[in-house]
Design a protein around this nucleic acid. Structure first.
Lengths: 197, 197
DNA sequence: TCTCAATGTGAGAGGTTTACACATCAACCT
DNA sequence: AGGTTGATGTGTAAACCTCTCACATTGAGA
């Protein structure tokens, strides 16, 4: 590891990396700007040159998470039927959440006012769009947006409850992935059955 | 307001009330034990006679939330069909979440390790039971538990995304309640259509 | 070469959590 | 009555954290 001079050179990115790791270890609540600075080897006030405050640093790591989520959704290959597509998206979402639960929590922590962080809001829209496009392949255009929101809700609920350990204790034997696929397929089948009502 | 002597008399409850109000105002993150103590009129170390630490105080208010949620679910009258039941439960859940979003967040904050707070876990089970019973009215017994978890996930996802403002910005015109009912009914219809697969 | 804008440092103000020794008081036991 | 005691509140203080501000350092461009 190269000795560094007075200036770090890439502090912003180094802080983001340290933050992600710290959040992973100690959780969103346990994380502190000071410790991130310490880990990177700068003074505890240095981070404030790059991030307005603690929340801004967390928001920036949340943004990275949203970008990654968009990528992972984009990589999914299109499937034939709506039920399969719904199950595919749901399980992918679940996988992402389980990869780094603490960061996933940061991404949706209500503490971060998304209206204060325009970029976060934008990225949220792009993910919605991902889902819209995929729904539009199997549904009338007029329905797509609402249905996409429904699917997202289903996936998100599965993810958060599962991460929080609320499902495992009740259904230890069932794989959460199977449950997700089953719920998504049921929802999808129900859509095509009686579009009205 | 009566002058109080050296002892408060009902500090535990007073703290719970103050905590709920503070969490409602400043959010879970903005809440501090000190401020709750100040508000109640005791020294900042007094709360630790009643709660092991900050998290314990939050866990206790979360528990109150879970008890209230169980009550509200218990009050729902049984309906004829599965789709109607699913929609009814989902909208009730949503209503509860919107009543006090910050407390709802505290209830499911991953920061609180439910395995550390046995009572929280227990109450979670009782809510699952509520749903199980209602599902069992319309489905084979063997399915009920899993289906209840699916329904809970759907409702929970709708609630968290809606609270976080992730749905409103995408679908400003659609009432979140309608979206919830629609999703729940679709899911329910899909269940009865082709139980297998 | 000189200057300046960006970036890092150190000190410090003000807030928080929590431990600990001590104060107070209601209730209970003689 | 009078004394003891366990529960509950107080005050102090240590260890932390966020964030501000004046100052130091340095690379890059004029």
């Amino acid at each position: 590891m190269p000795e560094r001079g007075y200036h770090h050179g890439d502090l912003r990115n180094a802080l983001l990396a340290a933050t992600r790791e710290l959040v992973r270890q100690r959780g969103a609540r346990g994380f502190s700007v000071s410790e991130a600075a310490r880990q990177v080897g700068v003074s505890s006030s240095a981070p404030y040159r790059h991030f307005a405050d603690r929340d801004a640093l967390l928001a920036a790591t949340a943004l990275e998470g949203f970008l990654e989520l968009e990528e992972q959704l984009a990589e999914l290959q299109a499937l034939e039927t709506l039920p399969h597509t719904a199950a595919q998206i749901t399980t992918a979402y679940l996988r992402f959440a389980h990869e780094d639960p603490a960061r996933f929590e940061v991404m949706f922590a209500h503490g971060l006012d998304k209206t204060q962080h325009e970029d976060l809001l934008q990225q949220t829209f792009r993910i919605q769009d991902q889902l819209n496009v995929r729904m539009a392949r199997h549904l009338p255009r007029a329905q797509a947006t609402q249905r996409a929101a429904e699917l997202w809700s289903l996936a998100h609920g599965l993810a958060t409850l599962s991460i929080g350990g609320n499902v495992q204790h009740v259904l230890p034997e069932v794989q959460i992935g199977e449950l997700a696929a089953s719920a998504a397929k049921a929802w999808a089948r129900g859509l095509t059955q009686r579009p009205g009502d």
